[in-house]
Design a protein around this nucleic acid. Structure first.
Length: 272
DNA sequence: ACGCCCTCCTGTTGGC
DNA sequence: TGCCAACAGGAGGGCG
């Protein structure tokens, strides 16, 4: 479900409620997620202030006084924000946080591909964080950097973009979209991608992700904001999930192929 | 060392 | 209408 634009939207919504508040209570209902929730987490975080709320890759990072709560939404994870008066326990709710401003934050994930991880101390000590690639909006994410990474590998460019090792935040939807705008087939091997093409990938990564953030993300099926609203970027998708329909640029039929057991979509005429 | 596949789950969808 | 297989937006780990 959630790729960078979706996580960015959720993070901003959380930030507007959580920043500079104190956790007064926390409940863990089911600790079995992708990684089991630290059984002491509720005790550890109670009475701590939330000093910052940021996104890193597809993680939401709550910085507390002596560590960080890392939240990953997996495929279908959701975060709800309620007032104490409104709040009711949700289906598949794994954990919640009661804040001193009368808000309740709940984390729900019926597929349990998500994660809630306590990192004592510095963020970068976590193995999930310290191997991540660059943020697409960072100043260092440039064609030369991308090119150097590409020529060192022989994997399909689409698979490469999903790895989060070179650039983070791109998932299955936006990978297809970015490659369409870059005029590159998803099954091209990275060592055949030119510097000029890397430039396009960097440029369109930023353009597509930014447009999707502004549209509130892509809601195909499960993604919803903390208030239950959907994102509208699905209406702007040009190739993802459009197999057998016509390319909006040249009218050729969009193809779907499977790469590493995941669907990719492209226009065989526009993309080489 | 690298690339590919499996796996963790459960809800939804499409075909018969 | 009902059943069942296939599929879904993530990503670490293990295998060849």
């Amino acid at each position: 479900m959630p790729e960078l634009p979706e996580v960015e939207n959720i993070t901003n919504q959380l930030k507007s409620v959580c920043l500079n508040t104190t956790i007064v209570k926390s409940n863990i209902y089911t600790n079995r997620l992708r990684y089991n929730i630290n059984p002491n987490l509720a005790n550890i975080i109670t009475n701590q202030n939330i000093n910052s709320v940021e996104r890193r890759a597809k993680y939401i990072v709550l910085k507390l006084e002596n560590g960080h709560i890392l939240i990953h939404l997996g495929m279908v994870g959701r975060i709800y924000i309620d007032t104490v008066a409104q709040y009711q326990k949700k289906d598949y709710e794994h954990m919640n946080l009661y804040l001193n401003n009368n808000s309740v934050i709940s984390f729900c994930d019926h597929r349990r591909f998500g994660a809630i991880i306590w990192i004592k101390g510095e963020l970068n000590t976590c193995f999930l964080i310290n191997k991540l690639g660059l943020e697409p909006f960072s100043i260092d994410f440039k064609a030369e950097y991308m090119y150097k990474k590409c020529i060192a590998r022989k994997v399909s460019i689409k698979v490469f973009l999903l790895e989060n090792k070179t650039v983070v935040g791109i998932g299955n939807i936006y990978a297809s979209e970015i490659l369409f705008y870059s005029n590159i087939r998803p099954d091209r091997k990275t060592n055949t991608i030119s510097l000029e093409e890397c430039k396009k990938i960097c440029e369109f990564t930023r353009i597509v992700l930014l447009k999707a953030i502004k549209a509130g993300g892509t809601s195909i099926r499960d993604f919803k904001h903390t208030n239950g609203k959907v994102g509208s970027f699905a209406q702007q998708l040009v190739v993802y999930s459009r197999d057998n329909r016509h390319c909006l640029r040249c009218n050729t039929k969009i193809l779907k192929i499977i790469q590493n057991s995941r669907s990719s979509y492209f226009c065989p005429n526009c993309q080489i």
